[in-house]
Each structure stands twice: as C-alpha cells, then as structure tokens.
C-alpha cells in the first residue's frame, strides 16, 4: 500500500514539474490549448452534421449517441491526461532517457507516465463532459439507482480500462521499439469506435472488442442497460455490470506486462 501511495505521489511531483515547465512557454501553451479545444469540439460537429440528414444511426437517436460519445471521450480523455505519454516509451529507450528516469528513487512507470504532463490534455474530457451533460438532459431518462450506478461505473471503470490499454500495450515497446501504433490504434482507435452504437458494426468486431480488447465494457454494455436496449450479441445481462471486474483484470494484466517489459529491458539493455 505504501508502495502504491509512493507511486502516485512521485507521479504527482514529476507531473507538477512538467506543468510548471510548460508555463515557461505561456503563449504556446495558450495557443495549443485553444487548438485542442477547437479540434475536440469539431469532432462532435461531425456527428451533428450526420444527424442533419438522418434522425437515427443504427437505430439510435442523437442524444443516445451523445451518451456513448460523452462516456467514451471521458474514458479515453482521463486516461490520456493521466498517463497517455507512456506511449513515448520506445523513443525514451532509444535515446537513453529511460536510464535517467531509472536513477530516481521512484517507480519507473510513474516517471514515464508523468513525462510531458500538460493540462492541455484536459480539453478532450472537458468537451466530452459537456456532450454527456447535454445528452443526459436531452434523454430525459427515468433515473433509478441501478442507472445511476451504471453511469458512475462507466466514469470510473472506463478510464481504468483505457489506462490499462495504454500501459499494457506500451509495454510491448520494451521488446519492439516501433510498437507505438499498436497501442495508439487500440486506444485512440478504440475510443472512436465507442462513440458509435454497437449495432452499426459487424458481429466479429463486436466479439473482438468484448472478449479480446475489453472495450465494450467501457460504455457499450452499461449504456445498453441504461437505455433499455437489446444487446446485438445477445450476452447475458450480468455482462452489463461486469465493468469493475474487467477493469481490475485489465489493470492487473497491464501491471504484469509492464513489470515483464521492464525486467526484460534491464536484463537485455540496449
């Protein structure tokens, strides 16, 4: 427990340093922040334009898709904000910067995840939160305790699952330096996938993102329950509540992958 606390504390200390370093270039920070907000906002405009021509997509109305969009955006956004820079691992190994991080009395994962931390990456979760609030308002749902629980579950487990994907798949870079795209396609690609209803995708893909990369648990399955919709895969209802277990398992697997990678690095060097 003390170890975990130190992992978080050391991450926070390093992240605060990066944040302070960014203020050395204030204008550039403001411009980049504005640009990311703009790009994020335009992202949802694409959906709005689509719905200009149709009022349903795969049988889902716009506010329903807004619920998916908002929860997916928050999940990837929060994970990316906290530890997204882990994807630069391969480059750090190549330049030898990882060795410098290993000299600090702190877990390597905390140090790598805190690298180039910036508040700018809050743009995505902020925009996703706005969309989510709008969707919840427009849906006019009949709230019951299980729906509240499912929503809270999505907001907590979603970031954990994406965080596990960031860390677990980045660990591959310990063995194969150019594996960055593998992780990027699962995380950023996966988040784009989750913005759309599962009904528009092929069955094989759905199986893949349920039992392979467990993206379906981030928001698809809980949202089906909240909206009272049928599951295109016909999975038992209990799966819709399984996100905490899946998130815990994914985080555990990611931790093991990271350890294995770091051990291999330290015993092979490069």
């Amino acid at each position: 427990m003390a170890e975990l606390r130190w992992a978080v504390t050391s991450w926070r200390l390093a992240a605060a340093m990066w944040m302070r370093a960014a203020t050395a270039y204030r204008t550039s920070f403001v411009l980049l922040a504005a640009a990311s907000l703009l790009v994020c906002s335009l992202d949802f405009v694409v959906l709005l334009l689509m719905f200009h021509h149709t009022d349903r997509l795969g049988g889902w109305r716009l506010p329903e898709i807004g619920l998916l969009y908002g929860t997916a955006g928050i999940a990837i956004g929060v994970a990316d904000f906290l530890l997204g820079t882990v994807d630069g691992l391969g480059e750090r190994i190549r330049t030898g910067a990882l060795d410098t991080l290993l000299l600090r009395p702190a877990p390597a994962l905390s140090m790598v995840c805190a690298e180039r931390f910036t508040l700018r990456r809050l743009a995505r979760p902020a925009q996703a939160t706005a969309v989510l609030l709008w969707a919840l308002h427009a849906l006019d749902l009949h709230w019951s305790w299980d729906k509240v629980l499912l929503l809270a579950m999505m907001l907590v487990c979603g970031p954990v699952i994406f965080g596990a994907l960031f860390v677990g798949l980045s660990s591959v870079q310990f063995f194969w330096g150019e594996a960055r795209e593998l992780q990027n396609s699962a995380t950023y690609g996966g988040a784009t996938l989750l913005q759309y209803p599962p009904d528009v995708f092929a069955r094989d893909l759905l199986l893949g993102v349920t039992f392979g990369v467990p993206l379906a648990f981030v928001n698809w399955l809980p949202t089906l329950q909240i909206l009272g919709r049928p599951d295109p895969l016909g999975l038992p209802v209990v799966c819709r509540f399984a996100a905490p277990l899946v998130a815990a398992a994914a985080a555990g697997a990611a931790g093991l992958a990271w350890r294995a990678g770091l051990r291999a690095y330290r015993s092979t060097g490069s």
């Binding site: 390093a14 960014a22 000299l103 600090r104």
Partner: peptide, 30 residues
C-alpha cells in the same frame, strides 16, 4: 537510489526549462 548520487557528464538530470532551485526542490521531495 536514495543512497547513491549519479552524474552523467553528457546528460543532465536537471529540468531544462525551470530554475535550478526547482530541480533541487523536486530532489528534496523525491
């Protein structure tokens, strides 16, 4: 790591964009 000190002549461990004092302050806490 808490009991050793390391200096690489060709690679700094200091924070490039921050005053020296900030790097020392981080060391104090780490």
């Amino acid at each position: 790591a808490r009991r050793i000190g390391v200096v690489f002549g060709q690679r700094t461990t200091l924070w490039w964009d921050l005053p020296l004092r900030d790097s020392y302050e981080l060391a104090r806490r780490l």
